[in-house]
Design a protein around this nucleic acid. Sequence first.
DNA 1: ACAAGATATATCGACTCCGAGGTAGAAGAC
DNA 2: GTCTTCTACCTCGGAGTCGATATATCTTGT
Lengths: 184, 184
Amino acid sequence: MAILGFLRDFPLHGYDLKNRVASLAGHVRPIADGTLYPTIKKLEDAQCLTRRTAPGSVAAPRHMLEITQIGTDQLRRWLRDPEPGFVTDDNKWYVLLAFLHHLENPREQALVLARRREFLDQPAQLFFDEQGAPIPAERLESPFRKGLMQIHRSTNLTEIDWLDRQIVDLNRRAGFSVRQHDGV
Amino acid sequence: MAILGFLRDFPLHGYDLKNRVASLAGHVRPIADGTLYPTIKKLEDAQCLTRRTAPGSVAAPRHMLEITQIGTDQLRRWLRDPEPGFVTDDNKWYVLLAFLHHLENPREQALVLARRREFLDQPAQLFFDEQGAPIPAERLESPFRKGLMQIHRSTNLTEIDWLDRQIVDLNRRAGFSVRQHDGV
DNA sequence: ACAAGATATATCGACTCCGAGGTAGAAGAC
DNA sequence: GTCTTCTACCTCGGAGTCGATATATCTTGT
């Protein structure tokens, strides 16, 4: 998804893609060659991108990659209806967020944000005692577990706050465009 | 690591472990059976844990798992000198944090927190233009990317704040115990 | 002229993990 | 009685990823 998302911005070659993806995922951890190039080939076979050999500006010849209409459609499908992991896994969610603007329709964007919002609303219960009963943060003996829950709560609130403001904003914009479209 | 960490608290059987690990990793996403049971067997072969068959309280017989001295040592080694991924990947870091109290020595605990602190200090540059120059958050056109960087910065500050307080606290405690030990 | 090093693409084997499926025992439904 | 459901454990195949390795090209230093 990140590959198509970056290509949607402008054409790139594999080596450049590698660095851009690396700075996004996790943080800074580079994507291995053995992952990138087979994936590019797979996307090419699926006609999601085209390849044009260009002389390397600095060194060996590059394969400039360009996204196709099929690729754009595929990207939008992934964004519009993300797999559960993309909502519940922080790293994946951030990747999705980085490309959500390619899903042009503000109402659809708001729906995706709402799914994340819903997920964050679930109360986090991380630790349980021998009987399986949840242990509240104040009862935890380990200061690290206490901090873990504190940080978790605090960062969740930050994100929820941002999500709510975005969702309102997007729906307002969607409302305007509907009214314009209806001629009201 | 999570398996040994939980067992260090008290003996558990596989099914129970599964649920406890699930509520920690990512969030709530259950660990697959196909991952858990082979891993338990691997740890047993490495003599990190022992297995005792007990009648199931509700259904089929359980295998109660108990951590051994070898397992405890292994756990402490992992905690003391974590692989890079455990410092740079949020999910893995949280798992590590959940069991860091098993690394009893406050000075060693502080060192691990310091590694995370150092990682968080690196300025995050997530997006680049066609020429490869970094784009500051204010210049980003996508509100999602802007929010992404805002949230990233805000949550980092929260965690850094907590880390600093913990590190000071742990070093203070380490200092006391050294002085006590020296008879000062 | 030639070696060294950065750029750039590609492949292979090993490893991890998951999901689907299977076994089996006990409790509760009808 | 037997059927379903929940608990509990286990295995296999496939998908995905990584690290090592190989290759080609261009620049720079000597």
